[in-house]
């Protein structure tokens, strides 16, 4: 499973993007479970966020969903920060 996260907006307006390929990873099952929950809570279209808030685009195996700060679920927040931290 390929999980991509792209962050746009924010006070600085600087974009960040990263992706994690879970195949072959020992913790693949945990990634899959987290990604499924995060995607289930996201929207198919980008919500209009709050002024200067980050907007996120999560793509899992080609399917893209959206969410934005500060209204993220725990799973969305965890997935986003893990992918941006560990992803390439």
């Amino acid at each position: 499973m390929r999980i991509q996260v792209k962050r746009t907006g924010g006070f600085a307006g600087v974009e960040r993007a990263a992706a994690v390929e879970t195949s072959g990873r020992a913790d693949a099952q945990e990634w899959h479970a987290l990604a499924e929950r995060a995607v289930a809570d996201s929207r198919g279209t980008p919500p209009i966020g709050v002024p200067d808030g980050f907007s996120y685009q999560i793509t899992v195996d080609g399917k893209t969903v959206y969410c934005s700060d500060p209204r993220l679920t725990e799973e969305q927040r965890k997935l986003i920060s893990q992918v941006l931290k560990e992803g390439a």
Partner: peptide, 20 residues
């Protein structure tokens, strides 16, 4: 940081216009 191509091009249309 912006090395990944945008998987959601939509060149001119603002992102917010496509609410279901």
């Amino acid at each position: 940081m912006t090395a990944n191509p945008d998987p959601h091009p939509g060149p001119v249309a603002p992102v917010f216009c496509t609410i279901v």
